[in-house]
């Protein structure tokens, strides 16, 4: 993959990221193997036990991740290429952080109200739209979802105190 311009600072190099991800894989692999040993990883009289396949899945994952890890520790070529540069990371976080806040808000305000706030905030902050563009989108999209799910399909989505106030 081609990464951006020269004048931006790399936040983290590809090599570091490779090592971190491979390490995480190894960790997941160990957890999988440990739990498989707990439920039994042998081959019983009537075929494999519950942990048989997961155990080998974990083992293969462990070996492959260690291989990736080794390759990247010994080879320093990835050091010069950036995994993500500063301005890129900023852009990614611009989506990711509001999305995460939206998900957390959903737990308290319900999905509809959170969606209104999220869409409005994002359009204002990133898109710099005027209020007259923001409002229709931010209100009509969640309203449309509300009608479709709560009224037509009778599928309850997370709702908050505001919906409860209106008797929903």
């Amino acid at each position: 993959m081609e990464h951006g311009t020269q004048n931006s600072d790399p936040v983290v190099s590809n090599r570091t990221m490779e090592i971190v991800v491979a390490g995480l894989f190894a960790l997941v692999a160990l957890v999988v193997m440990a739990d498989s040993i707990r439920v039994g990883n042998g081959w019983g009289s009537d075929g494999p036990k519950a942990g048989y396949f997961p155990f080998y899945v974990g083992l293969i994952m462990l070996v492959s991740s260690l291989a990736t890890l080794a390759v990247n520790i010994w080879r320093h070529s990835g050091e010069r290429t950036a995994f993500v540069e500063k301005h890129q990371l900023a852009l990614v976080l611009k989506v990711l952080v509001p999305s995460a806040v939206f998900v957390i808000l959903t737990a308290f305000l319900g999905i509809y109200l959170s969606a209104v706030l999220f869409i409005a905030f994002f359009m204002h902050w990133v898109g710099k739209y005027p209020l007259k563009t923001i409002l229709p989108v931010a209100i009509l999209v969640p309203a449309g979802l509300f009608v479709m799910f709560e009224i037509w399909f009778l599928v309850p989505l997370p709702k908050g105190p505001v919906e409860t106030m209106f008797g929903f």
Partner: peptide, 15 residues
């Protein structure tokens, strides 16, 4: 996630 499940509910029919 009890706090989420609690408020989940409800709609009224048009009638």
């Amino acid at each position: 996630m009890k706090d989420v499940q609690r408020p989940r509910c409800a709609r009224k029919t048009p009638f």
